[in-house]
């Protein structure tokens, strides 16, 4: 409803005359201005700063960078001092490029896995009887309320070589008593963690797209001679595409920059850009380089973010 017409309270004959009209105008203005300013200062301005600092030289002092740009009179200075050194460094060192590619790959594979697990789940939820559907939704949301960190941590105890999965496989005899599960600190563990942590984010948009769908459409397809599995591909799936896109974007974008999961479950060779950025920042204390890493990541994610925003606007 983005284009809804301006239907905000209008003062009519009853209120013109007293100060109702004036104060309404002011309060109306404040309603927009307060959150707008807050986000401009704490969300948009930081991006300008991060961009600026990514163009600075590294220094030893804290804050560990020498500013490129002081005051507003020095635009000329700024341009002449522009320094793409950090970006050049990013492209020179194959480690960074590999980290970006590997992040995108892990995010893509995770998103596909999430779709494979999440779609049947959302479909089963949407097809459940309407009496138990609210409970199922509640059950999907509940883990989302409990801490992300804790949920990832819980998997360490399961996936460790001497962890519960090994124990379970020993118990049911699928594995010899001397073998151990070698998943912890590998990419497989990262994928398990991603699917586990992001599943609610994938299932909920899919569910809301599927649940809205009129069941008589499927019946109409069957009635016209289309068997159920074919009706799924011709009707259900195309109509759920907005949910598929929303769910995929909601998962893909943050997964690309994910830090906690690769750090706790991944191995030394699990390359993810969130981890790289963290190391540059906290380990090497190279703030400008970390900023450059962040700016490039942001640029990579601009298109998915735009897709996501469009989708959200359509839904609203």
């Amino acid at each position: 409803m983005a284009a809804s017409s301006d239907t905000a309270p209008k003062t009519n004959a009853k209120t013109t005359g007293d100060d109702g009209g004036h104060s309404a105008g002011l309060s109306r203005w404040l309603v927009v201005a307060i959150p707008y300013l807050w986000l401009a200062i704490f969300f948009v301005a930081p991006f300008l700063i991060i961009f600026k600092i990514s163009l600075s030289d590294t220094a030893i002092a804290i804050p560990p960078y020498t500013p490129v740009f002081e005051g507003f009179g020095a635009i000329g200075d700024f341009v002449s001092q522009l320094d793409f050194e950090n970006y050049v460094f990013l492209t020179d060192d194959p480690l960074y490029i590999e980290a970006y590619i590997s992040s995108l790959k892990i995010a893509l594979v995770s998103t596909v896995l999430l779709l494979i697990v999440g779609y049947p789940m959302a479909l089963a939820m949407a097809r459940a009887s309407s009496t138990i559907r609210p409970t199922l939704v509640m059950l999907v949301i509940l883990p989302f309320w409990t801490s992300f960190l804790i949920r990832v941590y819980a998997w360490i105890g399961i996936l460790k070589p001497d962890g519960l999965l090994t124990l379970l496989l020993h118990a049911i005899g699928l594995m010899g008593p001397d073998d151990q599960v070698q998943i912890f600190r590998t990419d497989t563990a990262v994928y398990i963690g991603m699917v586990y942590s992001y599943l609610p984010f994938m299932v909920l948009p899919l569910y809301s797209a599927l649940e809205k769908m009129d069941h008589s459409l499927i019946e109409a397809a069957n009635d016209l001679g289309c068997p159920p599995w074919k009706a799924f591909w011709k009707i259900t799936f195309p109509l759920s595409l907005p949910g598929v896109i929303a769910g995929s974007m909601i998962c893909f974008i943050p997964i690309t920059g994910e830090f906690v999961i690769p750090d706790l479950l991944g191995g030394a060779d699990t390359l993810m850009i969130g981890k790289t950025l963290w190391t540059e920042f906290f380990g090497n204390r190279d703030w400008p380089l970390a900023s450059a890493v962040a700016v490039v990541l942001l640029v990579l994610l601009v298109v998915p973010i735009m897709v996501f925003q469009n989708q959200q606007k359509k839904v609203a």
């Binding site: 983005a2 986000l39 991060i50 974008i253 973010i305």
Partner: peptide, 23 residues
């Protein structure tokens, strides 16, 4: 404005965190 509302929902936390710190 609506962009500023939706973007933080999906923005990787490392970017949000780092940019706020620099601010």
């Amino acid at each position: 404005f609506s962009g500023m509302i939706y973007a933080p929902l999906v923005m990787p936390e490392v970017i949000t965190g780092l940019s706020l710190l620099l601010l």
